[in-house]
Simulated scan of single mutants.
Amino acid sequence: MKTFVFLLILANLLFYAFSEGYLGKPDNPDAARLANQMQAERIVIVSRGEEPPLPAAGGRQEKAAEAPAAAPAETAATEAAANPPADDGRKVCLAWNNLSAVDAERVTLLLGSRFPAFTMNRRLEGGESGGWWIYIPPQANKAEADKKAGELRQLGVTDYFIIQDGPNRFAISLGVFSGQKGGQDRLAELKGKGVRSARLMQRPGKDGTISLQAEGPATAREALFGALNGNLARPAVQDCP
């Protein structure tokens, strides 16, 4: 019993000494409390007095539905040219008069590549013929023209030059011939070497122009006009006389 009373008195004395600081105390009495404090700057208020909204179901699908689905209007002419109406047997004849050699070649290339059902007639108007020219059509820029010239050298063709100015800038000339037969023979020789992009064209003289006539299915008329508007500075076209 005496031992228990002694221990109780000793415990009270130790508690008194600790509370009065006789056994040492921290510099900041709130240090322990601050150490256990929550990081308030990380607390985010998500609502004030009301439940936060739930994410909408299928939100991703709603955003996808808002995206425009229609194709650009500019593609309409291209699609019409690629898929012309079925030929119903009716024919149309179109004429281009007094074209420069460059414009005549543009129309010829367009008809040959996208409207093969049309047959083309070509005629010089006024002035004397400037001969027959073998060439590769103008490239997009000098780098492309140089690249094409390199391909010619690899095929063993060295008799050429790149046109640097004028309407045929960056075209590659492969020779001018006084007669059609000479031009055709040289073109066949180039084709035999693998030059697939070379063409033969009759050149108008100093004051000459070129007239074209194209005959084909009447159902392709509007598609052809749309292709001319979308890809060329449209030359004047009219019905054949």
Results as ranks from 00 to 15, higher is better:
104 A>H: 00
218 A>T: 08
2 K>L: 08
214 A>T: 05
174 L>S: 04
84 P>T: 10
135 Y>N: 09
27 D>N: 11
216 G>C: 02
118 F>E: 06
199 R>Y: 09
160 Y>N: 01
132 W>F: 15
125 E>S: 09
93 C>T: 15
114 R>K: 13
86 A>C: 03
80 A>N: 10
163 I>T: 12
48 R>S: 07
178 S>G: 07
168 N>L: 13
193 K>I: 07
215 E>T: 14
129 S>Y: 02
45 I>W: 05
86 A>P: 03
18 F>V: 14
170 F>Y: 15
71 A>P: 06
116 P>S: 13
72 P>K: 11
194 G>W: 05
5 V>A: 12
191 K>R: 13
180 Q>V: 15
226 G>R: 07
199 R>Q: 14
170 F>C: 01
83 N>W: 03
80 A>V: 03
21 G>F: 09
125 E>W: 06
195 V>L: 05
8 L>T: 13
168 N>T: 11
61 Q>N: 07
115 F>L: 06
79 E>A: 14
6 F>K: 09
130 G>W: 01
199 R>C: 09
149 A>D: 00
131 G>C: 09
159 D>C: 01
153 R>P: 00
29 P>M: 07
159 D>E: 14
175 G>N: 05
121 N>C: 01
56 A>Y: 04
42 R>W: 08
20 E>M: 07
106 R>K: 15
203 R>E: 08
230 G>R: 05
156 G>M: 04
84 P>Q: 06
180 Q>I: 14
175 G>L: 06
77 A>H: 03
120 M>C: 02
199 R>F: 07
30 D>M: 07
165 D>Q: 11
13 L>I: 15
11 A>F: 13
231 N>G: 04
195 V>W: 07
77 A>V: 11
141 N>V: 00
117 A>M: 06
6 F>M: 13
217 P>S: 11
173 S>W: 00
161 F>S: 11
60 R>Q: 08
156 G>Q: 10
108 T>F: 03
23 L>H: 00
39 Q>W: 14
24 G>K: 10
158 T>M: 12
